[in-house]
Each structure stands twice: as structure tokens, then as C-alpha cells.
Design a protein around this nucleic acid. Structure first.
Length: 559
RNA sequence: GCGCCGGUAGCUCAGUGGAUAGAGCAUCAGACUUCGGAUCUGAGGGUCGGGGGUUCGAAUCCCUCCCGGCGUACCA
């Protein structure tokens, strides 16, 4: 990436100016090389002179002049340099460099945008992690897509990523027992038994559906069964059915995990006891009121947290300690947990528990996403209140389609509430961002198709002379294309996958403007220009397809 | 009370300390004998919640106050 070349060149210029006695500073401050919002300020803008001014005891513009004097860059890269405003050094790159990027995109194809900034570091991302006692809801969908696309982005940035779903299936947990009981009651009711359904049971229709399924499949064989055994069996059957259902829905959403990690396995493998023992051994726990506590306040938590209840059962935190310990033991350098807004209170204790285990809490990144509100006809659709309202993730996908659902979940930053406009998501018009972007791709495909239909041989991108590309719309499109690797890197570093939807829209817009201004196949376009534009259009297609692929959204040839 | 997330154009929201704060929608005004008008162009619209501070420079960092959402379990 050219940016890194520029950063290195400026750092070298500063050092050389220092050695020559023209500039004084102790350590080189961090500085930025960025694309200015206003294209009049060049391709890149450097703020080094300004951040260096106070140390150098010189006016920023004077520092800039000194830096410019010592700056060495390949001639084919830099066209000119300007010192502007309070001391910005603005760089105007040679068009030939931009032309080279277009060819580089063709050379790299599907790999364009990928970088190796992650250097193969192993990262484990855990997301969705729903309880195996019900269907996936809309918020799960948001978490699923944030996680899925973040993983795509990290992989593209050179990290080695694993995707994991944590199944909260601790067999003794009250919620799983309640779920099993509800299933048993529904089953017995099917055989005419008058059992009142408990207030705190699972009232969802899917419980009844599954009970009826068991009745059809196995008949009345469980009616006379020992109640304790039956509860255990039904809990297990229900859990497996729910996991299968969740896996199926997620797969239809394009979200596939490397591993479904069951909380119950932490007990089966004795990991929970091991984690507790380790904490005890490190002196991080104490007993009080008959319970075992983690001294989490020592590591910044508000209060100490129970690990083992008075009744002897470990808490959820105890499982979580074991799980995170397990993750580190599997060799992951960095852990990412993606949780809903109701879990933010757990960040402090989870990080504290890692610190207590002797791991740097910095290695765990917890991403909290905010609430999702579905909107139809300008009104909020309240989940589950009225018949016909969308409440399940599977129903959302059915109604708006996988592409729109995925795209819309990434329309906003995770930190913001998300108003999901159901009407807009299915609208076939340019105000629907996913259509707008996909249309740009289809339009490009159409140009290339038309060219072939007219019997034109598509030019070899690597052998085409691109010097005809020079007007504002062309240059602006190319610049946007050159941003792509940087966009991926930034999204990966900041854990902000939503940046890609914005980039996709910016790129699509840039293409539509180009399309409007620069005829490719029309009579009036000379052959040399036509070939250069066909090559540019091809590069735009590759980039658009690559960003859509990262988003898990299809890049249609026709719409 | 404490904690987390928001507060930016009429609406929904971008904006990793930089130059004149952006986009979409909505409103108004334009562009099709043409490669896909599912597109493009232009205009109006802002005390970046209020107030202090940090610095060459703050929507961005710090302090404080106000408003909204969520959380504050020996539930998972």
C-alpha cells in the first residue's frame, strides 16, 4: 500500500533533516497520512510538520519546507507536493501510479483488498451463543452478522480466524430444566393429562410443536416413564432439536461456525473444576456465606462475584472462566466476544477473571451491539405482540431475503441502535442501499456483456494503455478503488465491519457517476479510450464483488 | 446512586485530533434519439445536547451538567 511507503519516506526525511542539523526533535511523533476529504488537497495529506512543530521550535510551514527538501520518493509516484493551510503537506500522485493500481486489481482479482497486517495471528471470535431452548431472535441476527463479517474482514487482513458458537446448555441450569419440564408437560397434555402449564415455563408455540413431533414419532412410550429420566431425556432431545434449528437458520443466513462449543462439555471435561482450582491456587478466591467468590474488585470490577453458589452449583461465571481459559489453552492470541446490550455488565467481571487467571485482559475484546427495532409503515413492530408480526430471525430472512437482511444489519455501527426498515429492505429502488450497490455490479456486468455481444474483444487488462483515463470521474473512481485494502485494514483493526457497507455505497456511487459521464461503448468513444474504460470498469467490478463477498451479499450479473 | 451506549440537517445516520462537518431519505429545481433512468446533476437545510478545559487545531480527548435507551442476580 502506498500509504506505508509514504509514512516510511517521511520518517526517513525527518531523520535525515535531523542528521543534517536542519530539524530538532527527540523522538518522531506519530503522524498521519490520509486521504483528505476535499480532492483539491491532493491524494494524500501529511500532518507531520504540524505535530513536529513544537518539538522543533519552528513554525509548522517551515518544518514542512524542510521535510519537503529531504523527502525522497520515486518520480513515477509523486507528481507534485504542496504545503497548505496550517502546515499540511499535500501530495499529488502521478496518474501513472493510479493506472498501475487498476492493473494491480486485475492481477490480484479475488485477492484484491487482502493484506497481511494480521501476520497470521490466531483470533477466536465467539458470537450469537444463544441458549438452546428456543428460536433465534432478531438481535441474534445482528450479532451473527457483525461476527460473521468481522471474521471475514479479519481473515482478509491476514489473521487466522476461528468462529465459535457457545451453547449455554449447562444441564443443571434452571433455564434448561424449565425448558425440559415445559416440553414434558406439553407432551403429557397431548395425551389428555390435566397439567397446569407453569407461569415460568416456555410458552412458545415451538415447544408444543416439538412435543407433537415427539408424539407422532415415538407415540406414548414416555407417558409411563420414570419422571426424572424422562425429564433428562426430554431436555436432551429438546436441546438437540433447538441446536439443529438454530444451525439451520444461521446456515440459511450464510453464517457458519467452525465449532459449536457446549458449556456442558466444560463440566464433562472437568474444565470448570480446573478453572476454579487455578483461581483458588492463585489466591484469587475466598469463601463467604457458604459460597465461593472471585475477588474481582481487585481487577477493577464493581463488586466481587460468586463462582460457586451456596447450594454447591457453579455460577455462569465459573463456566465462563473455564471457557476463556480453554480458549487461551487452544493457542489463540486474541479473543473476541460479541454480546447483546443486556450483557455489558459482564465485561468487567469477565475481564477481571482473565486477569485473575494471569492473562492480560487486553487480549479479550468484548463488542456490545445495541438494540434492533423493526419498523414497518414508519411504526415499530413489537416482537410477539401481534399475530403476523415478525419476531423470529428465520421469518425476517424469509421476508426480506438474505442479502438485504445481512446488509441492513451492518448499516449502522454496533454502538448505535438499529432501526431496521422492513419496507425499505424489500424495495427495488435506489433508496435501498443494497439494491443500489448490487445494481452497480449488475450494470458493470451488463456493459461487459454488451461488449461481448457486439463482438468486441475485451482488452487484456495488463496490456492496455490506461493513459486515456484522466478526467475527474475516472480519477475519482480509481481513487476509491485504491482505498479498498485500507478500508479492510481499518475495519479489522477497529473491529468495525459496518464500515464496509459504507464503502460499498461510496464505491457504487462513484461508479454510477462515472457511468453517467463516461460512455464506454458508445460510438463517440475512441477505441483507446474504450479499452481503457473497459479495463477500469473491470477493476470496479472486481472490487465491488470483493466487498460484497466480504459482506456475504451476492453480486448479481443481472437483476 | 453507579455503569455502558447514544444525543450531529426535518428524518435515519457516517465521521481512527486536522483544512469549508458529510451521506441517504424527505423538500424544491433539472437531465433519457444513448452502454440498464433500478441512474445522474443542482439548491435550500447545522449554536455537532449545554458549559468549562487540554492544543497550533476538538463533533472527536478530559471534567461537569441535561436528555433518551439499556444494565446494575448466588438467572443464563
Amino acid at each position: 500500500m502506498v500509504k506505508h511507503v509514504l509514512i516510511a519516506a517521511f520518517a526517513r526525511a525527518a531523520e535525515q533533516a535531523k542528521n543534517a542539523g536542519k530539524l530538532h526533535f527527540e523522538t518522531l511523533p506519530t503522524f498521519t497520512v490520509e486521504r483528505p476529504a476535499n480532492p483539491a488537497y491532493g491524494d494524500f495529506s501529511v500532518n507531520l510538520a504540524m505535530v513536529l512543530a513544537s518539538q522543533a521550535k519552528m513554525a509548522p510551514r517551515q518544518v514542512a519546507n524542510t521535510l519537503a527538501e529531504f523527502l525522497q520518493l520515486p518520480e513515477r509516484l509523486l507528481e507534485r507536493l504542496e504545503i497548505a493551510g496550517p502546515g499540511f503537506i499535500n501530495l499529488y500522485l502521478a496518474p501513472t501510479w493510479l493506472h498501475e493500481v487498476v492493473q494491480e486489481i486485475h492481477r490480484q482479482g479475488d485477492a484484491y483488498g487482502r493484506t497481511d497486517v494480521g501476520k497470521g495471528a490466531r483470533v477466536l471470535a465467539e458470537y450469537v451463543s444463544a441458549n438452546p431452548n428456543g428460536p433465534l431472535s432478531i438481535p441474534h441476527g445482528r450479532g451473527a452478522i457483525i461476527g460473521d463479517v468481522l471474521c471475514n474482514v479479519l481473515a482478509a487482513a491476514g489473521y487466522e480466524v476461528s468462529r465459535e458458537f457457545y451453547v449455554n446448555d449447562a444441564a443443571t441450569s434452571t433455564q434448561m430444566v424449565r425448558f425440559g419440564e415445559s416440553l414434558v408437560i406439553r407432551y403429557l397434555q397431548e395425551f389428555g393429562q390435566q397439567i397446569e402449564f407453569p407461569e415460568d415455563g416456555y410458552h412458545g408455540g415451538y415447544v408444543l410443536d416439538f412435543a407433537q413431533h415427539i408424539k407422532e414419532r415415538d407415540g406414548d412410550k414416555y407417558v409411563a416413564m420414570n419422571p426424572a429420566e424422562r425429564l433428562e431425556l426430554f431436555t436432551q432431545m429438546g436441546k438437540e432439536a433447538m441446536i439443529d434449528w438454530q444451525r439451520e437458520v444461521l446456515a440459511s443466513f450464510g453464517v457458519v461456525f467452525d465449532r459449536w462449543f457446549c458449556e456442558s462439555s466444560l463440566f464433562a471435561e472437568n474444565d470448570v473444576a480446573k478453572g476454579l482450582a487455578l483461581l483458588q491456587q492463585r489466591g484469587e478466591t475466598y469463601e463467604s456465606d457458604g459460597a465461593v467468590w472471585l475477588a474481582s474488585t481487585k481487577y477493577g470490577d464493581d463488586k466481587d462475584r460468586p463462582l460457586v453458589r451456596t447450594n454447591g452449583r457453579p455460577t455462569y461465571l465459573a463456566s465462563d472462566v473455564a471457557y476463556h481459559l480453554n480458549k487461551f489453552e487452544r493457542g489463540y492470541q486474541t479473543l473476541i466476544d460479541i454480546w447483546g446490550p443486556d450483557h455489558h455488565g459482564y465485561i468487567a467481571r469477565t475481564k477481571a477473571s482473565l486477569a485473575a487467571l494471569g492473562f492480560s485482559p487486553e487480549r479479550l475484546h468484548v463488542l456490545i451491539y445495541q438494540v434492533v427495532r423493526l419498523m414497518r409503515n414508519g411504526e415499530y413492530v413489537m416482537g410477539g405482540k401481534r399475530k403476523g408480526d415478525i419476531i423470529l430471525l428465520s421469518e425476517l430472512i424469509e421476508q426480506v431475503g438474505r442479502d438485504a437482511a445481512r446488509y441492513f444489519f451492518l448499516l449502522r455501527s454496533a454502538d448505535s441502535d438499529l432501526n431496521f426498515d422492513l419496507d425499505l429492505a424489500v424495495k427495488e429502488s435506489p433508496d435501498n442501499p443494497v439494491y443500489y450497490v448490487q445494481y452497480a455490479h449488475a450494470r458493470i456486468a451488463s456493459i461487459l456483456r454488451t461488449a461481448e455481444e457486439r463482438g468486441l474483444t475485451l482488452p487484456d487488462p495488463l496490456a492496455t494503455d490506461l493513459t486515456p483515463l484522466g478526467n475527474e470521474a475516472e480519477i475519482s473512481l480509481i481513487r476509491r478503488l485504491t482505498d479498498f485494502p485500507e478500508e479492510i485494514t481499518t475495519a479489522a483493526e477497529l473491529f468495525e465491519p459496518h464500515r464496509l457497507t459504507r464503502y460499498a455505497q461510496d464505491l457504487a456511487r462513484e461508479f454510477h457517476v462515472f457511468y453517467d459521464r463516461c460512455p464506454v461503448l458508445k460510438e463517440e468513444t475512441p477505441e483507446a479510450t474504450r479499452n481503457a474504460r473497459l479495463t477500469l470498469v473491470g477493476a470496479a467490478k472486481i472490487t465491488l464483488r470483493n466487498v460484497l463477498t466480504l459482506l456475504g451479499v451476492s453480486a448479481p450479473e443481472r437483476m
